[in-house]
Design a protein around this nucleic acid. Structure first.
Lengths: 205, 205
DNA sequence: GTTAGCATGTAAGGAGTTACATGATTTT
DNA sequence: AAAATCATGTAACTCCTTACATGCTAAC
């Protein structure tokens, strides 16, 4: 089962899945990817890499020798076992998949999964958020008595944000469902809808 | 200095500031207040309360005896020292005040602080978010090469969310300056902005 | 030549979760 | 009578951050 701490592991496997990399770069990419919350420190990345080495999920490879410099940097690569583990973790649908942090990571690597899984994760995430919303709104109705202005404003803003998130997920789900058949002709962006990258055709990379 | 773990302490002091309460209820209110992220467990709340008791920030008081039931529940109350500490923590402007978690707590208890502090915290928070935005966008321009669709969509959504947050803060700051009660984005088209000669000199952003 | 950033690590410790343990009270 | 939920706690454990330690390389 995917415990909480497997987040780094999944992230590392996912990034290395796109090509070999050394620790320092790994950390930068990770922080860019999840940089909205806490920042990953070396103190957790390097030990995690060591652990993954021991578990045989990744291996060290010779650093690409740039003509001029041969600085000691350790480049990592996923093993076959590592790829299998990555697939396994990505295929896990269940609570752990749609918790805040885990969801982001999974989403970022969606290209490496089946649409079926994607849909299940997106829908799970949406349900989770809707539950929260419901719970908070129930609670507010019962307890609304003595909340101060600022606390109330914080609540309001929170609810609004989550509702936004739900809409985002709904758009993505619709996009996944609608793009089942690959359209050969580049579809001209028909609606003026803001969905941004709405399309997201299922690219198998 | 306010270390990370003072978050619970501040929250407890803030809630008790509004009236005595027992642990169980404290936890519920806290989770409702910050319930968007992690949920506070008894395993951290009760030890925190004990610690605060020892530090003399709170005291036990006799449970309000509901006619029918006299269930053993321990009601806490802030001491004078506790209130002093609360004021001290709330007045602390600085990085710790505008980190994600700390900001929310502080904001929720804004009613208990001066407008000057409020403005400083709001502006600090906004700067922080803008820095992040800048950093990410710089990074994206340099590294934009090989990001996959989903990772890109996640980025886009993240940026949009933070931009929203910045607008929210700007509205709040404007409201504080104009001495308007905070009801920013949700408010119907307000007739005219109150353009008072606000006492606070417009701190340049 | 010196500052800034690249690059890798370790040790100690903090903060909070999980799981365990217990029992009273209200609701169905 | 059972189930839910109120109510309080403790112990072990996990994950991660902070701070320390080291040295290379690019740019100014």
């Amino acid at each position: 089962m995917a415990r909480r701490g497997d987040t780094i592991e999944l992230a590392v496997l996912g990034l290395l899945h796109e090509g070999p990399m050394h620790g320092y770069e790994l950390r930068k990419r990770l922080n860019l990817m999840l940089g909205w919350g806490r920042v990953l420190s070396y103190g957790s990345l390097y030990p995690a890499l060591k652990k993954m080495l021991r578990a045989n999920l990744i291996t060290e490879v010779a650093a690409t020798a740039t003509p001029t410099s041969r600085r000691p940097r350790i480049v990592y690569e996923v093993t076959e076992a590592g790829n299998a583990e990555f697939q396994r973790l990505m295929s896990e649908v269940g609570p752990t998949a749609w918790e805040d942090d885990n969801f982001d990571i999974r989403f970022a690597f969606f290209s490496s999964t089946d649409m079926e899984i994607r849909l299940r994760v997106l829908e799970g995430r949406r349900s989770r958020l809707q539950e929260r919303l419901q719970r908070v709104q129930d609670e507010l109705e019962r307890t609304q008595a003595e909340v101060n202005r600022y606390a109330a404003e914080l609540q309001r803003h929170g609810v609004e944000s989550v509702e936004r998130e739900v809409r985002w997920l709904s758009d993505l789900i619709r996009a996944e469902r609608g793009d089942v058949t690959p359209a050969p002709s580049a579809s001209p962006p028909s609606p003026a809808r803001v969905v941004g990258g709405a399309g997201i055709p299922p690219t198998h990379d």
